[in-house]
Computed example of a mutant assay.
Amino acid sequence: MSGPSTPEGTRHVLTVRPEEAGTRLDVFLAAAGLGLSRSQAQRLIAEDRVTVNGQTAKASLRLTAGMEVRAVVPPPLPLAVEAEPLPLNIVYEDEHLIVLDKPAGVVVHPAPGHAGGTLVNALLAHCGPGLKGIGGVLRPGIVHRLDKDTSGLLVVAKSEAAQRGLSSAIKVHEVERAYLCLAFGVLAPDVSTVDAPIGRHPVQRKKMAVVEHNGRPARTHLYVRERFSRYTFLEARLETGRTHQIRVHLAFIGHPVVGDPVYGRRQGNLGLKRQFLHAARLSFVHPVNGKELAFTSPLPSDLAAVLAALRAGKEDEKNP
């Protein structure tokens, strides 16, 4: 529950649910739909802006069901990201949110090595200064993301109300996100689920991996669309939304995404310059007016051409 905004910030009162028992305090706050990253939650805790049952606590505190967590989230700092008038493929827009169809090759938000030319830079130019600070510094309005070389649908919040509502809906799995992908090998079952926790790779820290310890729950549902002699065309639906989730899960079961430069194979990429992964369907209930919204995006031409070649029995022509 969110309270009134004060000069110190917005006050939030949260009750730990039974299924959240045992969660660390910083992890709980990061997943609570307040627009906070785990590092931001840790900073609030260190600044004594968070109490558990009326007492300050450490970020590592393991919560139990029924505990009351109160947090004061300060107003966002000024955003040091410049607006850039870059093209946007807008599928839907109102005063609270905007749905975009992102092309491959576009980075969602600024990061080391990508200070400009990102989707956030373009959104600041399109939406104006009111977007600044929503959801935290450097990631205004971003409630979920797509990798640079993943194309497709993405929803961005334009108001604090939309930010809170969308973040909460994603947390409780009420936002449907379906992706189309091409995987190496032939998957036998028509329908399957990969249920395996994801965390930082223990050695290669820039990669994610399925890990036994300190991983976050991750679940991906797979539906076979078509099978070819050496590939499978899939629909993947996210139940959770961990970094690189589909790519990591498919690699984990031995069927990495074709064209994936990090988790895939170096050969047999059918001439693709990026991973065959496209956010094709997005549906959710509008967080402010309650309207049901659903959007679809067709496969981009580079992915559609590969699929057409496979259907024509030409998969060997582009294989080394």
Rank of each mutant, 00 (worst) to 15 (best):
M1Y: 12
S2N: 12
S2Y: 12
H12I: 11
V13T: 15
V16D: 04
P18S: 11
T23I: 06
D26H: 09
F28W: 12
L29D: 06
A32W: 08
G35L: 03
R38K: 13
A41H: 11
L44S: 06
L44D: 06
A46N: 12
D48S: 15
V52E: 04
N53L: 12
T56R: 11
A59P: 14
L61G: 05
L63R: 12
T64G: 14
A65S: 14
G66N: 08
V69D: 03
V73M: 07
P78I: 05
E82M: 09
L86R: 05
P87M: 08
N89H: 13
I90G: 06
Y92V: 09
E93C: 14
H96L: 11
A104G: 08
V108W: 03
V108H: 04
H109P: 13
A111S: 15
G116W: 00
G117Y: 06
V120G: 07
V120N: 07
C127K: 14
G130D: 14
L131W: 06
K132F: 06
L138D: 13
R139P: 07
P140S: 10
G141S: 09
V143Y: 04
V143I: 13
V143R: 04
H144P: 05
R145M: 13
D147L: 04
T150G: 03
T150C: 04
G152K: 00
L153P: 03
L153F: 08
K158C: 13
S159Q: 12
A161H: 07
A162C: 12
R164D: 05
R164C: 05
A169S: 14
I170F: 14
V175S: 04
E176K: 13
A178E: 13
A178S: 14
A183H: 01
A183I: 00
A183Y: 00
F184Y: 10
F184G: 01
L187N: 03
V191N: 09
V191G: 01
S192V: 07
V194E: 02
D195R: 03
I198G: 01
I198Q: 02
Q204A: 15
H213I: 15
N214C: 06
R216A: 10
L222A: 01
L222D: 00
V224A: 03
V224H: 03
E226C: 04
F228C: 10
S229R: 15
R230C: 10
T232D: 07
F233H: 10
F233A: 11
L234M: 03
L238K: 01
L238T: 02
I246C: 03
L250R: 02
F252M: 02
I253L: 10
P256E: 07
V257R: 02
P261G: 06
V262A: 04
K273D: 02
R274N: 05
R274A: 04
L277A: 02
H278M: 01
H278I: 00
A279I: 00
L282V: 02
V288A: 08
G290S: 07
K291D: 12
K291H: 11
A294F: 09
L299P: 01
A305G: 00
A305F: 00
A305Q: 02
A305M: 01
V306C: 01
L307V: 14
L307E: 05
A308C: 02
R311I: 09
R311G: 10
E315N: 08
E317V: 15
E317P: 04
K318S: 09
